[in-house]
């Protein structure tokens, strides 16, 4: 750490603020608690004691205002699509979206003949991580969340982006 090295006591960690914010965000991505179909059961299972998402700092929040990550778990119908969009808009920045399962990523089994199903939630909201499976195992969801953590860690919120 260059000139700052050995200037402080042993239990003081020195880091760039940019990276620190990314680290803090990535280790507590509270997710928005709502499920749309069978994927929701796997999401609940991931949050329950066997898989225990809270050890990764993830806790379900029932309000979009308090959530950082929206896990779209299940089939998004046209009727729900408008509401998903509204909920996404209600979340405070920084916000992330995980499309969990085949339905949320591409329409899944309703790809061809489901007149009422949105063919992938990325049509209405930007998606960060896609988790394949029908439904994905909790391990797969956790893998997706870990990928999201990596993505958040790599962000530099204070660095000005080149236009």
């Amino acid at each position: 750490m260059g000139i700052l090295e050995n200037k402080f006591e042993d239990n003081v960690v020195v880091a760039k603020l940019d990276k620190l914010i990314g680290w803090a965000r990535s280790t507590s991505p509270w997710y928005f608690q709502f499920g749309l179909a069978c994927c929701a059961i796997e999401m609940m299972s991931a949050a329950a004691s066997r898989h225990d998402l809270e050890r990764l700092g993830m806790m379900p929040r029932s309000s979009p205002r308090q959530a950082d990550v929206m896990i779209v778990a299940g089939t998004v119908t046209m009727k729900m699509a408008l509401r998903v969009k509204k909920l996404y808009e209600q979340m405070a920045d920084p916000k992330y979206v995980i499309a969990m399962g085949s339905c949320a990523t591409s329409g899944g089994p309703y790809w061809q003949h489901g007149y009422h199903v949105l063919k992938g939630v990325d049509i209405v909201v930007p998606v960060d991580v896609y988790v394949p499976g029908c439904p994905p195992r909790p391990e797969a969801l956790i893998e997706g969340l870990l990928k999201l953590q990596e993505k958040i860690l790599d962000e530099r919120p204070l660095t000005r982006k080149m236009a």
Partner: peptide, 9 residues
């Protein structure tokens, strides 16, 4: 539907 394009079957 509300600006969302529904692909033809």
């Amino acid at each position: 539907y509300h600006g969302i394009i529904i692909p033809k079957v």
